[in-house]
C-alpha cells in the first residue's frame, strides 16, 4: 500500500540515493545475464582448452543462429502477451515445401523465396485465426503445431529430400568472404539490431508493450490491437521461414521431424532473456544475451561430452530458475525500496 503513496518528489530523492541506484542496476536482469555469461565463459575455458578459440566460438554460433532469429520475433509475441508454439512446425513445413520445389528443379533464389513465403503464409494463418475469432493464441498454435507438422508427415512420410541445388548451401554454411565469420551470424546480428530498434524506438514497439500490459486499456487508448497482433504473428511466420531456409541449407536434408522441439528452445531463450511470460516486460538485449548464455553453455557441455538429454535437464531447470529468480528479485527490490523510503 505504501508504495503507491510515493509522490514524484520522493521518487526523485530515491533515484539520487546512491546505494539504491547501485542496487537497482545490480538487480537488473540484464546485469545478471552478463554475470552468468561471464561465469559460463570462464568456467568453460578452464574445463576445456578448446573453448576459448575464436574460430571454434564463431563456428558454434551455427548451432543457435536459427533459434536466435526466431527468438527475436518470439520476444514480440510474448511481450504482447501471446505465445506461439507452432514455430518448429512452420520451420518443418517450409522446409518440406522447399524440398518439393527443389525436387521440381527450382534454383537457390527461388527456394529462398518459397521458404520465406510459406513461413509468412503459415504465420498469417495463425494471426488470422487468433485475431478474427478471438481465440487464445496457445489454443490456435497448439492446433497449427500439429496441423503443419502433420502435413509435413503426410507429404513426406518416411522419405526425405536430400537434393538441393548448387549454391543453396551458402545460406546456412557460408562465411563472409575469406573471414571465419559465418553468414548466419551476420544475418542474425543485423536482424537483432532491427528488432531491437523496432521494439524500443518505434511506436509499434511501444504499442506491443501496451497490448501486453493491458489489452483492454490498449484498445481503449486507440492502439490497433488486432492489427498489431496479426502482424507480429505473420512476421514470426516469416522469420520461421527464414530460419527454415538457413537450417535446410545447413544440413541439406529435409525430414518431416526436422526442428522437433525447437519451439521449446526458442521459448527458453526468450524467457531466460527476461521477457515476462505474462507480457509487457523485457528487453531485446536480454534476449540476445540469453542466446549466447545458452549457446555457449551447450557448446561447453558438448566439449565435455555431456549427452543431449542431460543438457536438456539443465536447460529445463534453467528455464524455471529464470522465472523464479526475477520473481524473488522483484520481491527483494520492493522491500529495499520500502526501506529506502522509510529512511527518507
Amino acid at each position: 500500500m505504501e508504495k503507491t503513496n510515493i509522490n514524484e518528489n520522493r521518487r526523485f530523492d530515491l533515484g539520487r540515493d546512491f546505494r539504491y541506484r547501485i542496487f537497482s542496476v545490480l538487480m537488473k536482469w540484464e546485469t545478471v545475464l552478463i554475470l552468468i555469461l561471464t561465469a559460463v565463459v570462464i568456467t568453460n575455458s578452464f574445463l576445456s582448452p578448446y573453448f576459448l578459440d575464436p574460430v571454434n566460438l564463431l563456428d558454434t554460433t551455427f548451432n543457435f543462429s536459427e533459434k536466435a532469429i526466431i527468438a527475436l520475433l518470439m520476444a514480440f509475441v510474448i511481450i504482447a502477451g501471446d505465445i506461439d508454439i507452432s514455430v518448429a512446425s512452420i520451420v518443418a513445413l517450409s522446409s518440406v515445401f522447399m524440398g518439393m520445389a527443389s525436387a521440381a528443379g527450382a534454383d537457390a533464389p527461388t527456394l529462398v523465396v518459397i521458404g520465406l513465403l510459406s513461413g509468412l503464409a503459415m504465420g498469417s494463418l495463425n494471426g488470422y485465426l487468433i485475431t478474427k475469432f478471438k481465440i487464445p493464441s496457445i489454443a490456435v498454435t497448439l492446433g497449427t503445431m500439429s496441423l503443419f507438422r502433420g502435413i509435413a508427415y503426410a507429404i513426406l512420410g518416411d522419405q526425405a529430400y536430400t537434393k538441393y541445388p548448387e549454391g543453396f548451401d551458402f545460406f546456412g554454411q557460408g562465411y563472409i568472404g575469406d573471414s571465419p565469420i559465418p553468414f548466419e551470424l551476420v544475418l542474425m546480428a543485423v536482424l537483432a539490431l532491427g528488432a531491437g530498434y523496432i521494439l524500443h524506438r518505434t511506436s509499434f514497439g511501444r504499442q506491443t508493450y501496451a497490448i501486453g500490459c493491458n489489452l483492454q486499456a490498449a484498445r481503449f487508448s486507440g492502439v490497433p490491437v488486432d492489427r498489431i497482433r496479426f502482424q507480429i504473428f505473420a512476421v514470426t511466420g516469416l522469420f520461421c521461414g527464414l530460419a527454415s531456409v538457413l537450417l535446410t541449407s545447413r544440413i541439406l536434408s529435409t525430414r518431416p521431424n526436422i526442428g522437433t522441439g525447437l519451439e521449446f528452445e526458442v521459448i527458453t531463450i526468450v524467457i531466460l532473456g527476461g521477457i515476462a511470460i505474462t507480457g509487457g516486460e523485457g528487453t531485446m538485449i536480454g534476449v540476445i544475451l540469453s542466446t549466447f548464455v545458452l549457446g555457449f553453455l551447450k557448446f561447453g557441455m558438448s566439449l565435455l561430452n555431456v549427452p543431449g538429454r542431460v543438457m536438456n535437464i539443465l536447460t529445463g531447470a534453467l528455464l524455471i530458475f529464470a522465472i523464479l529468480v526475477p520473481m524473488a528479485l522483484k520481491g527483494l527490490r520492493n522491500s529495499v525500496e520500502m526501506k529506502a523510503q522509510k529512511k527518507l
Partner: peptide, 10 residues
C-alpha cells in the same frame, strides 16, 4: 505452460 515446458525436459 512455462513450468510444464521446463519439466518436460527434466
Amino acid at each position: 505452460i512455462i513450468a510444464t515446458l521446463g519439466t518436460i525436459s527434466i
